[in-house]
Amino acid sequence: MTAAETDEQLAERLATAAGAILLDLRARGGLDGKTLGKAGDERANAMLCREIRATRPADALLSEEEKDNPARCSNSRVWIIDPLDGTREYGEGRDDWAVHVALAVDGVATVGAVALPGLGVTLTSGVPVALQPANQPLRMLVSRTRPAAEAVFVAERFHAELLAMGSAGAKAMAVVLGQADIYLHTGGQYEWDNCAPVAVAQAAGLHVSRVDGSPIRYNNPDTYLPDLLICRKELAEEVLRVAAEYSSLA
């Protein structure tokens, strides 16, 4: 780290380094499934927290793997991290897992880096990805294990193909990379699940909001976030309308 390292560079460096730790641990063998996921979470989290505290000592920190300190809410700058998003996928030897490193400033996802170590890629708000043309037919992301009824309803209205994928970060980055067009999640997440993906998606020019169209705010006393929409901007108005229609029928 040098004195000139920006927040964007720090986020990218740390997300990539955590991914390397996770890949190395998995490659060594001897652990698998939940045991591997737990060990990976602990090692990646230890490095990330140590580095953030050393390089940004005045900032607050919120991690999935650390006991929350409510004092963070009085700090305008908070780093929000998920050392291993998609523990199940990581433990199963899949590639659809991620590392999230984000900085929220005054409640806004301002800086983000999402490493996809299994694909050898780290996407960052500092170097936005150029969006690709929409897929034909459209493609909509859903959970591998519990596709949300709202998402299936919207996909049917758009005649979109359903694409099952693991972690939240992997799904969000699939939209950024043009592999899919809509990521609608209504099953509940936490701030570390989507702060970094939201920052990267916003920087790439995608629409990001709650499912009612309101903005997503971070560094809240309660870190639970009920829902999320990441999609191409030209689809946002209609996706929100159809999602609202589903809510009225439910």
Rank of each mutant, 00 (worst) to 15 (best):
L23Y: 00
R26T: 05
L228C: 08
L31A: 06
G178E: 04
E5H: 04
A20L: 13
D212R: 12
R241M: 08
T16I: 00
S125D: 03
G30E: 05
Y183M: 14
M1R: 11
I216F: 05
E191R: 12
S214Q: 12
A54P: 03
G178F: 05
R146K: 10
V111F: 02
A168Y: 09
L123S: 02
E245V: 07
C73T: 15
R210M: 07
L138E: 06
N220V: 10
N219L: 14
V101Y: 03
E5P: 00
Q179C: 09
C73K: 04
L14N: 02
A201R: 13
S248T: 15
D212I: 00
K34W: 08
S209M: 08
C49T: 15
R28G: 06
A44D: 03
N69I: 08
L62K: 03
L123V: 01
E51T: 09
A243H: 02
G91D: 00
L162V: 07
D41W: 07
L177H: 09
A155D: 06
D7Y: 10
S125T: 06
E51I: 02
L225E: 01
S143F: 12
G178C: 07
L36I: 05
G188E: 11
K171N: 12
V99R: 03
K34F: 07
A60H: 14
Q179E: 15
E92H: 09
V175Q: 08
A172C: 11
G213N: 07
